[in-house]
Amino acid sequence: MRNLDKILAIVWKDLLTEVRSRELVVGMLVFAMLTIVTFNFAFDLTGVERAPSGAGALWVAFIFASLLGLGRAVALERDKGSFDGLLLAPVDRGMIYLGKLLGNVIFIVAVQLVTIPVFGALYDLPVYQPMLFVVLFLGTLGIAGLGTLFSVMAASTRAREVMLPVLLFPVALPVVISTVRATTLILTDRTDALMQWVNLLAAFDVIFLTIAFLVFDRVVED
């Protein structure tokens, strides 16, 4: 098997499990929607200044939904002992990381694709822009890249629900800053400074994914 096949096999396993059990995406989706609705009561989202708060609300919703999904995904694997099986498979640990990462990205993007139109309609913001989807994908890649690593670590602690956000939030801050900023610029149609943020975001993704890929092996070695 080539490496790509191995990664895809892991992704396929996760997708199949999800299609059959529907334990992750539905929960994440409902959570994301509720967060966006709740933010309406926290900020004034009807005025002219609604784009920055909206971008913030959108990303808070996505990050919390991601945390929920990442934690749940590992918990499911651990509970049924399938993660141990995965580690026993004759596959490089780095490939396991990439497979789990890709699966997580697909789940989060699925949630985003449903949430975005609802968000656009509720807050009356121009969401159908190609660049927004680029930013969503890059942001998700950064969050999931660190999140996949930290969720595996958090899962073997006594306080898994607490440990994941405690580890992820501070470290992922650069990704959060640049995605929220880029999303705000897109929603307010100020595209002059946009590429600067998108490039920065892409650079963060490369750095974080490289580190996570390198150390994942050390995290799952038992």
Binding site: L149, P174, W197, L200, A212, V215, R218, V219
Partner: peptide, 27 residues
């Protein structure tokens, strides 16, 4: 395991410092 996990956080945390600094400054 606690030592290994802590080492991972210690490494990522330190590499993150200049990255956070840069992103906050731009922001």
């Amino acid at each position: 395991r606690a030592m290994r996990y802590a080492a991972v956080v210690g490494i990522i945390g330190f590499i993150d410092v200049p990255i956070i600094h840069m992103s906050v400054r731009w922001w």
